[in-house]
Design a protein around this nucleic acid. Structure first.
Length: 958
RNA sequence: GCGCUUGUGGUGGAAUUGGUAGACACGCCAGACUUAGGAUCUGGUGCCGCGAGGCGUGUAGGUUCGAGUCCUAUCAGGCGUACCA
């Protein structure tokens, strides 16, 4: 019987739909397992063979867990909001909803052909109002929350001291009683430090109160420096900017101050850091997140300004180098610049600020020049009273620490470069450190010059003779005891900017009254995205939503009203920005648990059952974007009691990217003649990409090539051995490289099971690897052999005979290997195990049910279609998905011999086999019997015999 | 610059974690069956050498009876990040 994969796969894919094989429900009797893939953005290009890699890997795991008796949730959906659909809409006028819908249909069709065990009844789309209802809802909750340890005014009995999100009402209650007095000891997250009394608070009007509260809300409207991309007409988050240009499109990005919605992610910095210790992610990914969060311990110190009442604060991790400070530096954007610039320097400073302003992010990265200007003012070193000039330079960032630093050129390379350029003094503070050519940045050595000879410091303070570590501690203690500053932890992690000046995204459920944002009542959610005529910003520069005709909030009727009546009714303008891409993808895993619930994001029952994601599979490119936002979002929902686990993704596997393998032809310059790879060096040639689909085994199909492009119809070729051999290179898989391989084609030619097997066989899941269709025959051949094991001519030939020991050994070797390999995600070595077992059993002519039936179950996660068909042929009426994973039994694998290494005179000489259950005497006899091997006769003085495994026996021979 | 990571045949990649390196597959070679083959089957295939044999896991050392695996130094590639004080 021939292996007719086309019929088999079609039959079972239809049957799975008809029988709802993969639909799951909460089942308290069974243990849950939640497998999740990062959901795709449905781009217009469709899937290429790289996309399904992670889906196949997780599908195998999901099917395996199910066969082990777990109730497995394995959902799929679409991250449907995004820039490409909108850019396409701007160019063509085609509504993004329509293109998105079409792209999703295409994706679904492609996915269905590969035979995944997704429960499609739980599909979510981020652009669906039923879905973004809960994105908007979460945003409103963030608006209504602040972050702190419990405040005494609302602390519940027995409440733990943990910092978390709390209702803003609790903060208001505190203000009513204390104002801001004593607030700092509760670790309240805030944009800036405010100070007012309880009575001042009570005297504020509503707008003023709202302005104050904005300083504490987790979702807040803030005036911040943003990454503005003029080409895209929108702001971008830090992770959306790569090398100073936009991730999408590669357009320049500049810094601009704008009023934007922000999420106070920074409040969660410590918890995001701590949480990493509890989850099973790769160390490198955790490290990437740790760097992104960027915790650094240091001190804030106050510096007075000479001849002035003014003072300012700096942040440093090297308080111990205070005696080496020779200048101060302010960030150009810092408020202090205005205050500290002297009239004499005003012109120079203005000129410098103008220069900085016109520099783009990209300029700053590409030419890292040393630039700066003297402010005219001097600061006073609080330890020595010495005067220090205050400079302004772009190498100090406004957004980190206090936007001002103390510069220690001897021990900081950036300060060093600055000091050299502007000829400022450099004072070495470490014994033996040579600072004539570069700074000494390491935190080691013995401190000197602190203070320098002849200088006295406040209270006779001295660090001389201490190690750097001791000096850091001593300085911090001194700073604290003399009230010169305070110990401070800073994070690099910034708040996320949450507004986008785009159309195709979640609308904010917000309207404006007296210039202050108000939340649309919860019962009126979702606030649906309106239709617009144009997708570009309006003429007046408002975001595209300004083009919507009916887009204002009518508080009387709780509905979106027509703008034209805005003056006659109590109608308020709505927020015109939309939410960024990560809004919809931050909590989608929770929604899969209960996707049709219109009362809650997720019901307590469903949330309580599924808890969190046990296995998350996706690309590592989301390390500092989605995977941070999502963890933040989940922690917030955890604080609300909506999410059950503080960490959303327990184990995470990064699938490696599948790269393209491009082929090249070589055209002789200024001709239409192409020369084969081996001969190209004899000519002056231009390499040109050629479609990999008309190349097989690097040999060009010349007729197909002539048909490929009209200009090649008359091409001539210089062949080697009658063939045209192409060159190749590993590149990104993309249309422009003509190296895209479409999974549909592979499925059509070889079948879904072959594709699944081959993708896993290609190499470790985590590793990046190039796609090469050539090897696929091997996987396909294996499936044919596997199929043939069950047949004799055209008859199904499985018997009920008793298996032999050798057959059982082959089976149990396979069970062991496959189970271990799935557990450790080593699918690429599990598949050879199937090949070996198949060869062994074919040679043994084994067609026994007791052996073959368990093997069908073993292969079911990898090649579900063929497994279903054989399972049915074996006489089962239920799906192979409901079978039981075979148990491995050690007794079938016991080896009868063990290898022994014999070593003497300091060298391993030879190895022999001996019975596995042999005692030492038998082993010694075996060794002695080899003593007379003529080859070794000259080495009479045997020193020892080493046995593997794990036994060493010394035998003296002569 | 910093952090992470990987170096094994012509290619993708194995190696029970210190025990006869190169499993499995592609490719290549030979043979069989074919009118034909980008079909199927069988055998071979790390390198050098006719051979005995020698050499081989980026490079150089070290530990060990024994090293792809452990240690030290060094080189090369990939990914991430970027003036974070």
């Amino acid at each position: 019987m021939e292996y007719n994969f086309r019929d088999i796969e079609k039959k079972w894919q239809q049957r799975w739909v008809a029988m709802q094989t993969y639909k799951v429900t909460e089942d308290k009797e069974r243990r849950k397992f939640y497998v999740l893939n990062m959901f795709p953005y449905p781009s217009g290009a469709g899937l290429h063979v790289g996309h399904p890699l992670g889906y196949i890997a997780s599908d195998i795991y999901a099917r395996y867990k199910r066969l082990q008796g777990f109730n497995v949730l394995n959902p799929m959906g679409y991250d449907a909001y995004g820039l490409p659909a909108e850019q396409y809409a701007i160019q063509t006028g085609q509504h993004p909803a329509i293109t998105t819908e079409a792209n999703i249909a295409r994706y679904r069709e492609q996915l269905d052909k590969i035979g995944f065990s997704f429960d499609w009844s739980r599909e979510v789309r981020t652009c669906d109002p039923q879905y973004y209802h809960w994105t908007q809802w979460a945003f409103q909750k963030m608006f209504g929350s602040f972050f702190s340890s419990p405040l005494p005014t609302s602390r519940k009995k027995g409440e733990e001291d943990c910092p978390k999100a709390r209702p803003v009402e609790e903060l208001v209650a505190y203000f009513e009683e204390h104002g801001t007095e004593g607030l700092e000891e509760f670790g309240v997250a805030q944009s800036e430090e405010l100070s007012f009394t309880a009575s001042e608070w009570k005297a504020y009007d509503e707008v003023q109160k709202q302005q104050v509260l904005m300083n504490y809300r987790i979702a807040y409207l803030g005036e911040t420096m943003v990454n503005w991309c003029p080409e895209l007409g929108t702001v971008l988050a830090n992770d959306e900017v790569v090398d100073g240009v936009s991730e999408r499109g590669g357009f320049p990005v500049v810094q601009k101050k704008m009023k934007q919605w922000c999420l106070r992610v920074s409040a969660y910095a410590q918890r995001l850091l701590d949480g990493l210790e509890t989850i099973d992610w790769t160390e490198s990914l955790k490290e990437t997140q740790r760097n992104w969060i960027g915790r650094s311990e240091g001190a804030e110190m106050e510096f007075k300004v000479k001849d002035s009442e003014k003072s300012f604060t700096i942040f440093t991790t090297r308080a111990d180098t205070i005696f080496g400070v020779t200048f101060m530096v302010l960030a150009p954007e810092s408020e202090l610049v205005k205050e500290l610039t002297t009239p004499g320097q005003q012109a120079a400073v203005d000129e410098y600020l103008a220069y900085v302003k016109k520099r783009t992010e990209r300029d700053r990265i590409s030419d890292r020049k040393v630039t700066g200007v003297f402010s005219g003012s001097h600061a006073i070193n609080p330890f020595t009273g010495q005067e220090i000039p205050i400079w302004i330079s772009e190498y100090v960032l406004a957004g980190y620490g206090t936007g001002a630093i103390m510069a220690v050129p001897a021990h900081d390379s950036r300060d060093y470069a600055f000091a050299r350029h502007f000829n400022l003094p450099i004072i070495p503070l470490i014994e033996g450190a040579d600072v004539s050519h570069e700074s000494f940045d390491a935190k080691e050595g013995t401190v000197m010059n602190s203070p320098a000879d002849g200088t006295t410091a406040l209270d006779g303070f001295s660090l001389n003779g201490l190690t750097v570590k001791e000096a850091i501690t001593a300085t911090k203690a001194f700073v604290a005891s003399h009230n010169l500053g305070r110990v401070k932890v800073n994070f690099r992690l910034r708040d996320a900017i949450f507004s986008r000046q785009r159309y195709w995204g979640e609308p904010f459920p917000v309207y404006y009254k007296d210039g202050m944002p108000q939340m649309i009542p919860e019962e009126c959610l979702p606030l649906e995205l309106p239709d617009v005529d144009k997708f570009l910003p309006t003429e007046t520069g408002e975001p595209p939503l300004g083009n919507a005709r009916r887009w204002a909030w009518d508080t009387a009727s709780c509905s979106v009203a027509d703008c034209s009546t805005i003056d006659n009714k109590t109608v308020f303008p709505l927020e015109l920005n939309t939410m960024p891409g990560f809004a919809g993808s931050s909590a989608y895993y929770l929604r899969y648990m209960d996707p049709h619930n219109d009362q809650a994001l997720v019901s307590p029952e469903a949330g309580g059952y599924w808890q969190n994601v046990d296995l998350y599979v996706g690309g590592s490119e989301h390390a500092t974007g989605h995977l941070i936002y999502s963890r933040f979002w989940n922690k917030f929902l955890f604080d609300l009691g909506v999410s059950r686990k503080e960490e959303p993704f327990q184990k995470l596997v990064n699938q490696g990217m599948i790269q393209g393998r491009s082929n090249f032809v070589y055209r002789i310059k200024d001709t239409n003649t192409f020369v084969s790879l081996g001969l190209k060096d004899q000519y002056d040639v231009t390499p040109l990409h050629v479609d990999v689909n008309i190349v097989s085994g690097d040999v060009l199909d010349i007729e197909a090539f002539k048909d490929w492009r009209p200009e090649y119809a008359t091409a001539e070729f210089i062949l080697e051995e009658g063939k045209y051999v192409c060159g190749w290179a590993v590149e990104k898989m993309s249309k422009s490289m003509f190296n895209v391989v479409n999974p549909d084609m592979i499925v059509e030619k070889f079948g879904a099971d072959t594709l699944r097997l081959y993708e896993m066989f290609l190499g470790p899941v985590e590793q990046a690897k190039p796609w090469d269709t050539n090897g696929i025959d091997g996987s396909h051949r294996f499936l044919k052999k596997f199929w043939n094991m069950f047949w004799q001519k055209d008859a199904f030939a499985v018997t009920d005979d008793e298996p032999t020991a050798a057959e059982m050994k082959a089976l149990h070797k396979l069970i062991k290997k496959v189970t271990e390999d799935i557990e450790s995600f080593s699918y690429n070595t599990a598949i050879p195990a199937f090949m070996i077992a198949t060869n062994e059993l074919t040679q043994l002519k084994c067609q026994k049910r007791a052996v073959l039936e368990p093997i069908v179950v073993l292969i079911a996660p990898f090649a579900p279609h063929i497994a279903e068909e054989l399972w049915q042929q074996l006489g089962h009426e239920t799906s192979v998905c409901d079978a039981q994973w075979p148990a491995f039994e050690e007794k079938y694998l016991v080896e009868d011999t063990v290898k022994m290494m014999v070593a003497f005179n300091g060298k391993t000489r030879f190895s022999i086999d001996f019975p596995a259950d042999a005692d030492n005497a038998t082993i010694e006899a075996a060794a002695r019997s080899h003593e007379l091997t003529p080859k070794y006769l000259e080495d009479k003085s045997i020193v020892k015999v080493i046995i593997v495994p794990k036994r060493m026996i010394n035998i003296v021979m002569k």
